[in-house]
């Protein structure tokens, strides 16, 4: 952390210590619901559905049950596989589209680049629910069959509804504006003199990108990709509206653990833990970069 204002304000040691303790308490309170969730994941369903208690004999039984597969019921493995591929491919697509766009907006800016940038952001203001019905009908009717002659690959869709491809397309569109916006601010950090100098040396465009631009922007690219992963991984609305039978993702799998019969809280908690861990850990690792990326959108 770059600077600390606390000491500058010249509090005495006691106040400083008390504020430190207060911060710890607030932090623990903030984290408490998650701590409780993890705890409940190791309980018995009956134990989790009684008065709150810290004392119980932990069991891995819930996690084992969640790993079991039943025909006709969405399994963890299936949902995790769907989530993984949808998020991975849509994030790669976002980056492939957003990086050249950010280059065009920051390094060799097109005329009226600001208007273009605002157009991208303005699409985030459109309520997605307004597009829901048309998306449903368009997806329902979309069908094609593409054959690759020599290799013999066939790429065929009768409908896009309930397919992973549909969510890949929608998540790409959902994250693209934010990615363009963040990446532009990272690209704007590349000093113009460096690029000019390498131009003078006669370095090719590809060479410039490789040797000058990429080293500077790569942390920003990573932070942006991570944010796309978080939003895609956690997305529920589009998945549940357009994808409820066939390519369901982890948030849908978690929601399906709430049943109307019997106690389900421990099972639901264990499922929540399984579904959230990858993104939470990734976020923990990259928190500082995320601060930087979001803040630069404000200033640069």
């Amino acid at each position: 952390m770059a600077s600390q204002t606390g000491p500058v304000l010249g509090e005495n040691k006691v106040v400083s210590l008390l504020l430190g303790i207060a911060t710890w308490i607030v932090g623990l309170l903030f984290f408490f619901p998650i701590f409780w969730l993890v705890l409940n994941g190791f309980k018995d369903n009956l134990e989790a559905s009684t008065r709150p208690t810290l004392f119980f004999s932990p069991t891995l039984e819930r996690f084992r049950e969640l790993g079991e597969e039943q025909a006709g019921v969405l399994s963890f493995r299936e949902a995790a596989t769907n989530s993984f591929w949808i998020v991975l491919i849509s994030t790669i697509l976002v980056m492939l589209l957003a990086i050249p766009a950010a280059y065009s907006l920051a390094i060799r800016p097109v005329k009226k680049w600001r208007d273009v940038l605002f157009f991208f952001i303005s699409t985030k203001f459109l309520p997605i629910v307004g597009a829901l019905m048309p998306l449903y009908f368009i997806a329902q009717q979309a069908s094609w069959r593409i054959e690759v002659p020599i290799v013999g690959w066939v790429w065929e869709y009768d409908t896009l509804l309930n397919t992973r491809l549909l969510l890949v397309i929608l998540y790409t569109a959902m994250n693209l504006p934010l990615a363009v916006w963040m990446l532009r601010s990272f690209f704007a950090e590349v000093p113009k003199e460096l690029i000019e100098a390498s131009q003078m040396d006669g370095t090719s465009l590809l060479g410039q990108i490789k040797s000058v631009i990429l080293p500077i922007v790569s942390p920003g690219v990573a932070a942006t990709a991570l944010l796309c992963v978080i939003f895609g991984w956690n997305e529920f609305f589009l998945a549940v509206q357009l994808n409820n039978a066939g390519a369901s993702t982890l948030p849908q799998w978690v929601a399906s653990q709430e049943t109307s019969r019997g106690n389900f809280i421990a099972t639901l908690s264990a499922a929540s833990v399984l579904a959230t861990i990858p993104v939470v850990v990734a976020g923990w690792v990259a928190q500082k970069r995320m601060i930087r990326g979001l803040a630069m959108g404000a200033i640069k």
Binding site: W24, F30, F236, A275, V279
Partner: peptide, 29 residues
């Protein structure tokens, strides 16, 4: 959080966690 104290990074990590978890999970909890 913008002051020096023991475990500053850890407390920040605890506090950002709610933002990282799925809205569905947060709501159920």
């Amino acid at each position: 959080l913008d002051r020096k104290f023991i475990g500053q990074g850890l407390v920040r990590t605890l506090i950002i966690t709610p933002f990282l978890i799925m809205p569905v999970v947060a709501s159920f909890v």
